[in-house]
């Protein structure tokens, strides 16, 4: 039985983990296996965990404003480890221009505050498949 595994991370300095917890629960209720890691990891931690857990996707919540650095660093590390097939998505307060930029470098999707949970879940069901 192939199951989709998703790592939900809250890297960086800000301590607001309500959003990421709510999304984690919604993903669980949609049948995903969610690995939740708590606050304040570095991009290196996030990628190490993703590799050990063999996840299909990494979801990151960033409210601190450091999104450009955190997402691009995670993508870079995934490439270094030959793990580009892991889908990276996220959420947070991210200006329009940065959304465009981050998508252009490989972030699959970004959800801004106020996005209905249903939208996120439907997107995850469509776009995250178990690795073969």
């Amino acid at each position: 039985m192939r199951k989709v595994r998703i790592l939900m991370a809250k890297p960086g300095l800000d301590g607001h983990d309500r959003g990421v917890k709510i999304v984690s629960r919604a993903l669980r209720d949609a049948g995903f296996e969610v690995i939740y890691t708590g606050l304040h990891q570095t991009p290196e931690d996030v990628v190490n965990i993703a590799l050990q857990e063999d996840v299909d996707a990494i979801g990151m919540s960033v409210l601190s404003g450091a999104h450009n650095y955190l997402f691009s660093r995670v993508l870079e590390l995934l490439k270094e480890k030959n793990a580009q097939e892991i889908v990276v998505f996220g959420g947070g307060i991210i200006p329009e221009d940065d959304v465009k930029y981050l998508k252009s470098i490989g972030v699959s999707e970004l959800f801004l505050p106020g996005t209905p949970l249903e939208t996120i879940i439907n997107w995850a069901k469509e776009n995250i498949k178990p690795l073969s």
């Binding site: 199951k3 984690s24 629960r25 993903l27 669980r28 209720d29 949609a30 049948g31 995903f32 296996e33 969610v34 690995i35 939740y36 890691t37 708590g38 965990i49």
Partner: peptide, 11 residues
Amino acid sequence: FTGGAILGDRI
């Protein structure tokens, strides 16, 4: 019910 899970021990 859903087969999903939250795995939080790593925290």
